[in-house]
Structures are given as structure tokens and as C-alpha cells.
Amino acid sequence: MQYVLEVESLKKTFDGFVAVDGISFRVSHGECFGILGPNGAGKTSTIRMIYGFSPITSGNIKVFGLSISQGWRTIKSRIGVCQQDNNLDPDLTVLQNLEIFARYFDMPKDQALHRADQLLKFIALDNRKNSTVTDLSGGMMRRLVLARALINNPDLLILDEPTTGLDPQSRHQVWNKLEDLRAKGLSVLLTTHYMEEASRLCDRLVIMDRGRILVEGKPMDLIKEHVGQDVIEVAEPGDELQKYIRSGSMVYEDLGHRLIIYGHEGEKLFRTISDEYCKEGCILRMATLEDVFLKLTGRELRE
């Protein structure tokens, strides 16, 4: 089977509010696929329909070639889900969290213990087996949620904002673990609003906003296509510079106190600008996915 996940014209409405507005995408076997978008873009709604938590308004979802309405139990027994909330079981210890979760999958006890042992080593919590989960740090909890999602040896791992709210150290540790899994050929579906996370982990991604997919592609291709190679940022641009920029055919964004210029031959332009218009507060950097994201979804707050 070629695709682990096929989403077709998927739509979700809540009392007239359209959360997901006819999106389609496919995830191949062994691929890490990202869904990016600002708050309220419809990422979580999409993911929840994929793992059978919320019913589909219209459209189609196939996981492992099975439709979710028919094969929900088979699908759910073959996927691992890391939800956004840390919904570990606070009444149980670290080890019990894995053990009892394995029971939900009808896994025999010795097999569950063996698997839990492996996973606790994998996430470096094997020395905290008998701790209560409320005694763990945020990063440890997140790793345990990840381990719990892997208890059934899933064929598709679904991660809903896996590193939101973590400190940089913990975040990098989670990324490390996810890269390990990816290297082993696990198919992954991930939502995030951290661009660094998406660039680092995703083979392919979509950027969503207001329930629709704006673009789809490989991170590097999207950057090249939508913002070019380089970005020049000028803090507090003077009138002269503003005039110069407007006269050319440059792609730029004027944020008032900051001017952002996108382009392919940034170095030459940067020299001109820094020599003639501003001596400081002017930088040249590589274009990132964040530039693409902000360019496409706009800069206004989403609350």
C-alpha cells in the first residue's frame, strides 16, 4: 500500500462555523508530513477527524486504505496519537501509564511490560518508573506522552503540537527522539506552529489558514518559491531607503518600524543598502519557513 493516509475534500463545521473547509492531502509510507497554521487554522480539527475522535462533516479519510467510519477500530489500533494536552493518567505511575494504556490495545501483560521497558529507555525515563506523573517536569511528561503513543508499535504516529510549551532543551530532546523514529521509517503526521520544528522534521507539509490549505510542498521548495533565498531586514528604515525600495521591483513588506525585503540576490542588494542607506540595524539572513508562513497567513494576531 502506497499511502498511509488519504484525505479528500475533508470538511468540518461546528454549528455553522467552518473549521475545515474542503482540504485534501496524502501521506506516503515512511513520510513525515506536517500541517502548519496559526491558531484556529483547523489543524487540530483535521487531526481529530483522522484519529476518529470527531465525526466528519463531509469528505473522506482513508487510513491504511480503510475508511475511518468502517474500520475505526482497526485504524485506531494501528496508530499512535500524541494529543495536545498532557493527558497522562495522574492516578498512575510512569510505568503504569504505559502498562494500562497497552491494555486498551488488548496487549498481553508480558508483552506490554517488555515494550514499556524499551520505551522508557528510549525516552530516558527508565530511572523514574515508579514516580507519579505529577512529579515529572513538563519535558519528561511530553516524552512519556510520546512513549505512550508508541506503546502499540504504531504504523502511523500522529502528533498534535508535540513541543508546545516546552523549554528549548526539552524541545530539542523531543525532536531528537522524533528524528530517531523517522530514521526507522515510521510514518508521522504532525501539526505545529513552530517553523523550526517543521523545517527540521517534515519531508513535506501544508500551510493551512482558516480551514483551507494555502500551499503544499517540501520545506526548502516552499521557501524558494515564496520568499526566495535571502531576506534583508532593516530596522527603523529612513525615508531615502523607503523611496529606493519602492522604486525597484523588489518584493518587500513594510511593518512600520521594520522593512523586510525578500529576494534571490540578497547579497548584492544588501551591500547597496548597507553602504548607502543604513549603517546599522540592517541584516542579511537566509530565508526560513517562518517568512513563508507569515507572508502567506499575514501578521495579524489570531486569538
Binding site: 484519529y51 493518567d89 494504556f101 486498551y104 505512550r148
Partner: peptide
């Protein structure tokens, strides 16, 4: 508070 049901619903349980 504990979201235990949410976690269960991501498993083969209905």
C-alpha cells in the same frame, strides 16, 4: 480535569 477519556478515545476504545 484529567482528560482520561480523551486519552482513551485515541485508542481502540469507543
Amino acid at each position: 480535569f484529567q482528560k482520561t477519556f480523551d486519552a482513551m478515545m485515541a485508542t481502540p476504545l469507543s
